[in-house]
Every structure is written in structure tokens, then in C-alpha cells.
């Protein structure tokens, strides 16, 4: 099972979401444990890619280090 399939099965990817080839490569480069962590924290995967080149689309959360 690919990482994409695992995440789709867990409901972490919006149905019909289209990844670029580059993003798919990144997704498939994640380790088994990283994909497990994404599922564990119920991270919706991929939406951030949509905003890759859009600055100011979301404000930063503001919790700083």
C-alpha cells in the first residue's frame, strides 16, 4: 500500500485532491512512522500545498519560540 493510499483510507486526504508530481514524490518519501504520525494527529494532508505560492493567505498563528 502506498502512503497516498494509506492516508486516503484513513480519511486524511480530501476526496479528489490532486497532488502535483513533486508533491506525490514528497508524500511517498515519508516513512511508515511519519504517515502513522499524520494519521495519529488526524492531519488533513495536502491542503497546504494549495497555498504553496500564496503569501499572506493565512496569518501566522503567532505562538513564537
Amino acid at each position: 500500500m502506498t502512503n497516498l493510499e494509506r492516508l486516503e483510507e484513513a480519511g486524511m486526504i480530501r476526496p479528489g485532491h490532486q497532488f502535483s508530481r513533486e508533491d506525490l514524490l514528497l508524500l511517498e518519501s515519508l516513512s511508515h512512522e511519519e504517515v502513522g504520525a499524520l494519521i495519529s494527529v488526524k492531519a488533513k494532508v495536502g491542503e497546504g500545498f494549495l497555498h504553496r505560492n500564496v503569501s499572506g493567505d493565512h496569518p501566522p498563528v503567532g505562538i513564537v519560540f
Binding site: 508533491d23 508524500l27 515519508l30 492531519a43 488533513k44 497546504g48 493565512h58 496569518p59 498563528v61 503567532g62
Partner: peptide, 14 residues
């Protein structure tokens, strides 16, 4: 990788 998974944080920030 961070960009891949940060939508939850962006939503809360907004």
C-alpha cells in the same frame, strides 16, 4: 513536510 500538514494550524490562526 510542514507545509504538507499545516492546514490545521492555519485554520486555527485565521
Amino acid at each position: 513536510k510542514i507545509r504538507l500538514a499545516r492546514v490545521e494550524l492555519d485554520s486555527v490562526a485565521t
